[in-house]
Amino acid sequence: MKAWPKVALGELFQVEKGKIGIMAAIPGGFPLVTTAEEFLSHVEPHFSGDAVCIPLISATGHGHASLKRLHHIEGDFSVGSILCACVNQSPNRVMARFAYYYLTACKDSTLVPLMQGTANMSMKIQDVAGVQIPLPPLKKQQAIVARFDALAEKTRELEVHLDAADNASAALLLSLHHKLGSDRTVRLGDIIELHEVTEPIRAEGQYTQVGVRGFGGGLFAKAAIAGSGTAYKSFNRLYTDAIVLSQVKGWEGALALCSAELAGMFASPEYRTFRCKPTVANAAYLGELFRTEWFWPQLQAATWGVGARKERTRPEQFLNIQLPMPALVDQLKIAEILAKQVPLKAKHTAIRAANAALLPATLERVFSEPA
């Protein structure tokens, strides 16, 4: 790649800041590029052509510079005001999709260092326009893009296959759940209870945090923070089989069972913990049930508010949810069946991780190779 000449983006692309605040957008017939993976929509387009869209604001904030993803788009579209659109003005010299793949591979060395600021680090349009990209012959660009597109499609197909297998497991659970619990409706508060282990925060202490992903994504460990770095007076210490509910994002399925590996870690008071009543509920069973798409609307209905303005899901709202529930003996039988799928799910997780890393690793290798 060292033999390829480098050219500034501003020489090849028209670089402009996005023209619409995300909250001001009106859903319509044109794609609206945001920092999220999926596009939104808007009633009118502000740009037209073949373009790369680059976030101008750090993905993490708090004085840390990072970029999560860029986008490539063609046609008529709008762009959120915290991104910029690089619209191709030199199609005989460069492919926007080639620039997208290069900048995605090299964003940490080409774009992230441009970010400045304190709490909200950001880039300037003129700095983005000055970023230089390698410019091989157009046929070489086309070959590279075709290679990456084919690889991206293969990884997408694998994800679809894994999703189908995981959905089959969830369908089996729900089928048995409704069949065996159809004549037995319970209130969650009758089978689980609020149980929190609070730990006062010491300024000199270090606390490994846990978060909850939405839509059944489970718990994940976060970096430890110092007691002096938080305004909270106490944290909730997690324990094995604790049912952890995010009050802020509960309405989008941010609810999960705590594994033995994460027990002993901490969550802020915004995460409430519940335990099963041992004579009527099985934690493994409920943990799987709460991961299903069927259960999330129950949380949404229990939480007041509309759309993004939903309020916190309070414990009493969560415990007041009513749903069909098999007897404990049936829960245990179903949990035993589901347990046999654990090794397969672990393999799926490992495959997903390797699959997600494949395209970035290939991009990095190609763009670090000599031409």
Rank of each mutant, 00 (worst) to 15 (best):
Q209H: 01
Q209R: 15
Q209T: 13
V210I: 15
G211A: 07
G211S: 11
R213N: 10
G214M: 12
G214Q: 05
G218P: 00
F220H: 06
F220T: 00
K222A: 10
A223Q: 15
A224P: 14
A224W: 03
G227I: 08
S228V: 12
G229N: 14
T230C: 12
Y232C: 09
K233V: 07
R237S: 05
R237Q: 14
L238M: 07
I243L: 15
V244Q: 05
Q247P: 01
Q247S: 13
V248M: 15
V248A: 09
K249I: 00
K249H: 14
K249S: 07
G250K: 05
W251A: 10
G253N: 06
L257K: 02
L257I: 13
C258H: 03
S259C: 09
E261K: 01
E261N: 00
L262A: 04
A267G: 08
S268M: 06
P269A: 12
E270W: 04
Y271C: 06
T273C: 15
F274P: 02
C276R: 05
P278V: 14
V280E: 12
A283V: 01
A283D: 08
A284L: 11
G287K: 03
L289M: 11
L289E: 08
L289V: 14
R291I: 07
R291H: 00
E293S: 12
W296Y: 14
P297F: 08
Q298K: 15
L299R: 04
A302R: 06
W304E: 13
G305I: 09
V306A: 11
A308W: 05
A308V: 11
K310Y: 00
K310R: 15
E311M: 02
E311Y: 03
R312Y: 02
R312T: 12
R312F: 06
T313P: 02
T313D: 04
P315D: 12
Q317N: 14
F318P: 02
L319K: 01
Q322T: 15
P324N: 09
M325R: 05
M325P: 00
M325H: 05
M325W: 11
P326L: 11
L328F: 14
L328R: 13
V329L: 11
Q331E: 12
Q331H: 13
K333Y: 11
A335Q: 03
